[in-house]
Every structure is written in structure tokens, then in C-alpha cells.
Nucleic acid binder design. Structure first.
Length: 715
DNA sequence: CTAGGGTTAG
């Protein structure tokens, strides 16, 4: 066997002298190959430098280019030196072959890079491409076009090649298709459509790849309707959609939330046994999630696994995103577990979505766990994620954790606390009556260039109220006025809340603030404090007030007003307000009755409102019993088990428990259902009968005069 | 490594 590979010495020794063209006389096709590449390799450095220089000095472009062309023109270089023969099957030969082909790719890549950054004119493009010589091979054209990212220049390159190669119809469509890809890369869908027109004008027949590229371009440009439009045009060009196109279209229809079409194509794909990939399934899952049908998405997920398609990280992230949207936090952990079991590596989106879910659900352990996991993986937290953690801390009452997270944020190097971050930390301190810490953070906030917001001032009112520093509460109100901030209902609620903790002789100071903040509310408060008889105006004014405010503020206000009534020892007014709240549907479904159990639902009520509702319920039970109605086997009170320190120091559950004990009510905390207090029919009966004979109405005031914070719920 | 796929959170 005479076949040997010819390697030029100049290549081996990095000698810049070229190898003689006569080497083509070698019987091995490899020899020419390597010869060409070794030449390319030796001229790389110079070429790069020159082409870079020409970018900066467009006027000197031509002469430089001449030098480049000369260097690259393999036929013109012809000074002989020495050669080495290498056995083609030897490892050494492989080494050179690889190196040579790498070199050629590098050369073509550099050409493409020059084209990507050159002035987009036919002239500049042809000057650069002259280096390829006159006989441009189809594969070189394909390679270069494929490396193009500049969709403005790419059509010039395409036209150059079409002109040089004079390709057949088959080759033409390939070159057009590759050029189309550059428009996808630069997200220029209009440009892609224009190139399609040019294609038609030249009489080139588009194929499935053409349409696939166009359709995916449209999708990537967030123009799913365009994708649909082009899909529908497909038959008029004599094309028949295939698996790849259907797959893209399932996603496109899913993107437009066209459930019918997406599912129809999906069913078709299943019927035809076309393989769909994880991303197509992800699109379907997302579609259902966006439309609020998480369970439908989950069904697709199960089907996907049954069909043997392995879920990707995106699939899991999509599911988690759906859970976040649907506020179904309790399912998140299982999805995450399955993901880990499945060996799919969580990424930043996985963790940030989990963190958002847990933080929103105030599942602090979960959220902190994810936070630690992110730190362990060296993932940078965003301002938003830090703020969600801090807001959760404020809601749940995690002081040390909040401080630590805030410090982490400052030293993260990637983001700094913003107004929201400071606000949350101030709220954390304020909820716990930590005056000096709250003041210190406020100072830091101002020094960092942030004005106090209404949220911050609301927190500070709460803080000083808790500390019984009434004058400072008034001072904060003045600041609010000075800053030209319009007090909102939440701020007023906070003032009302402070009233429940303020000694009677100082109430006037707060009432003055409330009157200035909201005349209507001020008038209502006068009724309560001055113990005016309700001449019918009280109910009218309060209804007007409740009807005029934002729907999100209704319940907090109602809660505060009831708390104040309780505090002022006016249980009948508290009851009237609760009833009004029920009439206006501010409170809903407080009581429920099923065959087996009658229940009272106190979740999201303030302490005063909850205890008022409890008393009303107990009275209703007595009435039912008196009227001869039979009780169900079980009676229950649901307080919820949220660690909502924001709502109350003790939590509704413990306040409720002590109130029930005070009433000698035989309710017991359910061992298997957190937040539930239950009593059996017989125990309830004997207690209610005994109670009605003593006719004692509990004084609720003990609940709220002890300095505990009553519920103020912010949105 | 030389013609078609990227999708996911706010």
C-alpha cells in the first residue's frame, strides 16, 4: 500500500514557508488536504490581525485584504522545502488529520466572524470572501452561512455564494434555509419573511425545513400567531407537515393558548406515534398552567412519563411555575422530590420558583432551606428573591433570619437592598416593638438615598404604638403629612390598631390623626369612643365608608373596628359590625353545617372579630338546641395554624383556646388536624345546657387589653 | 463540529 499522508515540514516546524503545489501529485487525497490546511494554519495569526485592523480602518481595507488573499491563496504559494510521510493508519496521522480539519474550521469560522462584523454591503462581503478563491465549495458555503449571526449581512453572503457556486435547485434551498436561521438567531422575523419572498422570486421551492425554521423563528420572536399563519400556508407550497412541524405547532398553539388546536395536534402526534420531546410537553403543561388548569397540566405530565419521555428540568420548572400561579404550595415539595429522585438537576429557575412558592405560602423552613441550597450552589440571589424572603420574615415574625438575610444581601456584591428591603426589615422590627432597631434601619434607609414610604411609616406607627409611645405615633403622622403622602386605609387601620393598645386618656391624640387622615372614619370613631347612641347614622356612615374603599382594605378595616369595639367594651356593637360585614360579604362562610359536623371558620379574622364570631356561634348553637334541633356528632372551630405573628402575638389558635377555657367549653385541640378545636355532640350538649342556665356573657375585653396586637391585615 | 428544537419564573 503506497498510501501515505504527506505532511509539510513547514507545518511541523512552524516554518512559515509554504509547501509546493506540486504535492498534489501525491496519490493520496489526504496529502492535498493536509497541505491546504497547513497553509491556512500558518497564516491564521496574520489574517486575524489584519481583519481586525480593517474593522478599525475601513479605508485601508482593500490593501490589507489583498495581503490576506495572497496568503490564503493556496495555489500561488509554491516554494518547496521538505516533507514527511506518515502512515495514514498511525495515531500520528490521526493527530494531524484532526488538527488540520480543526484548522480549516477555524479559518472558515474566522471568515464568518469577519462577515458578522463587517459593513453589510455586497462589496465588503465579497472582499472578505475573495479569500476563498473562485471555486467555492458547497460545504464551505454551508459552513460559513451556518456560523453567521448577523442577519443584515447574511443575505449578501448568500447572494455571493449563489453567484459563485451556481448551485442546483437542491443546493439553493439548503443555502436559503441556513440563511433563514440567521434571522431566527437575531430575532428578526420580518427579515425572515423577506428572505422567504426572495426565495420564491428566485424560483426556489421551499421545503419543510424552510417552514420549520420560519415557524420556530416566529415562536422565538413571540409571534405565535405568525407561526400559525405560516403553518396554514404550508399546503399551498405543496408541503405536507411532518413530525417535527407538528411538534413545533403543538408548542405554537399552546403559546397562543389555543387549547383545542394544541390538543388536537397532540392527539394526532400520539395516534401517528410521532415522538414528541420534553419541550413540547412542557409547552402543553405551561398552556394549562397559564389558563389556571394545573391538574390538566399534571395529567399531561403523567401521560408524558407513560409515553416514556423523560421530563427535563424545564418540564419540572413549568410544573412548579403552575403551582406558584395556582397558589398550591403544598404540592411543590412532592414535585421537587420527584425531580430529584428522577435524577434531574435543579437549576436557578427551579430554586427561585420554589423559593417564591414557599415564601408566598409563608412556609419559612422551606424557603430558608431553598435559600441555603442556592447559596451552597453559588447561585446569585436577585433583589426580588431577597425581598420575598424578607417580606416573609416580616409576615411570619422571623427576626434573626431577617437580619441575617439583610446582611447577606448587603455583602452579596451582586445586589443591594432597595426601598422594599428596608421596608420589610423595618416591619420585622416594628411588629416586635423593637424601636431602636426600627429607627436605626430607617436611618440607614434614608442614608442609602431612599425616602420613607407609606409602608415604612405604617410600620413605625405600629412600632411606637406597641411601645406605647403615643407622641411618637403622632410624630410619624406629621412626617407623613410633611412628605405629602396621602394616608391610605391600611395606615388608618394601623392607627385604629394602636388605639386598642393606648390608654384611654391618650386616645384623643390618635383620634385627631384619624380625623385628619379620613374624615368619614373619624366620624365613625367618635360614635364608638363617645358611646353615642346609634340613631341609625352610625350604621349608615359605616356602610358608606366600607362601600367606598378598595375591596382589599374592607376586611382589615372591619377587623380593626370590631377590635376597637371589643376594646371599648361594646360587644353589641362588635356584633353589629360583624353582622354588617357578613351582609356586605366582607366576611364569608364563617359558619358551615354538614351532616357530620358543624363548623366555625375563624381564619383571617382579627382576634376581636374571631371572638365575636365565636360568641355568636355559641349563641346560635344554644338557639338551635332550644328550638329542638339535633346537633351533629361533631362540632369544630377552625382557627388555622398559621404562625402569623403579624396578626397576633399569640396566634389566633392560642387566643381561641384560652377563650374557650374561660368559657369552660369542652373543646379540645384536634391531635391530627392542626388549627382545629373539636367537641363531640354529647359534651357540647351538656355544656350548652348548663351554660344557658347561668346566662353568663363573657367579657371579651381581657383578650385585647393585655397589649397584644390585634389583626391588621395588609392586602 | 456541515440544512430543522427550544422550551421554564417575575
Amino acid at each position: 500500500m503506497a498510501s501515505h499522508i504527506c505532511i509539510s515540514h513547514s507545518f511541523l516546524s512552524h516554518n512559515h514557508q509554504s509547501f509546493p503545489s506540486s504535492s498534489s501529485s501525491s496519490s493520496s487525497s489526504f496529502s492535498l488536504h493536509n497541505f491546504l490546511f497547513s497553509n491556512f494554519a500558518s497564516s491564521f495569526k496574520r489574517f486575524t490581525l489584519l481583519s481586525k485592523a480593517s474593522l478599525h480602518h475601513p479605508n485601508t481595507h482593500a490593501p490589507h485584504q489583498d495581503a490576506v488573499s495572497r496568503d490564503l491563496d493556496t495555489n500561488s504559494s509554491s516554494s518547496s522545502k521538505s516533507r514527511v510521510w506518515v502512515n495514514p493508519s498511525s495515531s500520528r496521522a490521526k493527530h494531524f488529520r484532526t488538527k488540520s480539519s480543526t484548522s480549516r474550521h477555524s479559518y472558515l469560522t474566522r471568515l464568518a466572524e469577519s462577515l458578522n462584523s463587517c459593513t453589510p454591503t455586497a462589496q465588503h462581503v465579497s472582499t472578505i470572501l475573495k479569500g476563498l478563491g473562485d471555486n467555492v465549495s458547497e460545504s464551505d458555503a454551508v459552513f460559513i452561512l451556518d456560523k453567521m449571526v448577523n442577519s443584515v449581512t447574511a443575505p449578501f453572503v448568500l447572494r455571493y455564494f449563489l453567484d459563485k457556486i451556481k448551485p442546483s435547485g437542491d443546493t439553493e434551498v439548503v443555502l436559503f434555509n441556513i440563511t433563514l436561521k440567521t434571522f431566527r438567531k437575531s430575532r428578526d422575523f420580518e427579515g425572515a419573511e423577506k428572505l422567504f419572498d426572495e426565495m420564491i422570486q428566485r424560483g426556489v421551492k421551499p421545503d419543510n425545513i424552510t417552514f420549520s425554521t420560519l415557524i420556530n423563528s416566529a415562536r422565538m420572536c413571540s409571534l405565535p400567531n405568525k407561526a400559525v399563519e405560516w403553518f396554514e400556508k404550508l399546503p399551498s407550497f405543496g408541503c405536507e407537515p411532518d413530525a417535527m412541524l407538528y411538534s413545533a405547532m403543538v408548542s405554537a398553539y399552546a403559546q397562543t393558548n389555543n387549547v383545542d388546536m394544541a390538543l388536537r395536534l397532540y392527539d394526532r402526534a400520539k395516534a401517528e406515534r410521532w415522538s414528541l420531546d420534553a419541550s413540547t410537553f412542557s409547552s402543553l403543561i405551561k398552556m394549562h398552567g397559564v389558563l389556571g388548569n394545573y391538574d390538566e397540566g399534571l395529567r399531561i405530565f403523567q401521560e408524558m412519563k407513560a409515553l416514556g419521555v423523560k421530563p427535563s428540568v424545564v418540564t419540572y420548572n413549568t410544573l412548579l411555575g403552575g403551582l406558584f400561579k395556582a397558589r398550591r404550595s403544598w404540592q411543590a415539595k412532592n414535585i421537587y422530590k420527584e425531580m430529584v429522585t428522577d435524577g434531574v438537576l435543579p437549576d436557578f429557575i427551579t430554586y427561585s420558583t420554589l423559593l417564591r412558592i414557599y415564601a408566598a405560602a409563608q412556609y419559612s423552613d422551606g424557603a430558608f432551606g431553598v435559600y441555603e441550597e442556592m447559596k451552597r450552589h453559588g447561585m446569585d440571589m436577585s433583589v426580588d428573591l431577597y425581598n420575598r424572603l424578607l417580606a416573609m420574615c416580616a409576615n411570619v415574625g422571623c427576626i434573626e433570619e431577617a437580619v441575617e438575610i439583610f446582611e447577606d444581601m448587603k455583602s452579596s456584591g451582586t445586589c443591594q437592598p432597595n426601598s422594599l428591603s428596608f421596608s420589610s426589615l423595618i416591619t420585622v422590627y416594628s411588629c416586635n416593638g423593637m424601636v431602636s432597631e426600627a429607627e436605626g434601619t430607617l436611618n440607614e434607609m434614608v442614608q442609602s438615598g431612599f425616602q420613607p414610604t407609606i409602608y415604612v411609616l405604617t410600620s413605625l406607627v405600629q412600632c411606637y404604638g406597641k411601645a406605647k409611645r403615643t407622641d411618637d405615633v403622632v410624630k410619624i403622622f406629621k412626617q407623613l403629612v410633611d412628605l405629602h403622602i396621602v394616608p391610605d386605609v391600611q395606615f388608618c387601620c394601623c392607627l385604629l390598631n394602636v388605639m386598642t393598645q393606648t390608654p384611654k386618656e391618650e386616645l384623643g391624640k390618635i383620634i385627631e390623626c384619624i380625623e385628619k387622615a379620613n374624615t368619614q372614619l373619624g366620624s365613625v370613631i367618635r360614635y364608638l369612643v363617645e358611646e353615642k347612641e346609634d340613631d341609625g347614622n352610625f350604621r349608615k356612615e359605616i356602610s358608606e365608608l366600607l362601600n367606598s374603599i378598595d375591596v382589599k382594605a374592607k376586611k382589615p378595616l372591619c377587623n380593626c373596628l370590631i377590635d376597637l369595639c371589643v376594646r371599648l367594651n361594646e360587644p353589641n356593637r362588635a356584633r353589629d359590625l360583624l353582622e354588617l360585614g357578613l351582609t356586605l360579604e366582607i366576611y364569608k362562610n364563617l359558619q358551615s353545617r354538614s351532616q357530620n359536623q358543624w363548623s366555625l371558620h375563624l381564619k383571617k379574622l382579627s382576634v376581636g372579630a374571631a371572638m365575636t364570631a365565636l360568641n355568636v356561634w355559641i349563641n346560635d348553637l344554644s338557639k338551635a338546641l332550644e328550638s329542638g334541633e339535633d346537633l351533629p356528632p361533631l362540632l369544630g372551630v377552625n382557627t388555622g395554624y398559621g404562625k402569623h405573628k403579624y396578626v397576633s402575638d399569640k396566634g389566633l389558635a392560642s387566643v381561641c383556646e384560652s377563650h374557650l377555657r374561660e368559657l369552660n367549653a369542652p373543646f379540645h385541640e384536634a391531635p391530627d388536624k392542626a388549627g382545629w378545636f373539636l367537641v363531640t355532640k354529647d359534651a357540647a350538649k351538656s355544656w350548652l345546657e348548663c351554660r344557658s342556665s347561668t346566662e353568663s356573657i363573657a367579657d371579651l375585653n381581657f383578650q385585647v387589653s393585655g397589649g397584644s396586637t390585634l389583626a391588621v391585615q395588609y392586602g
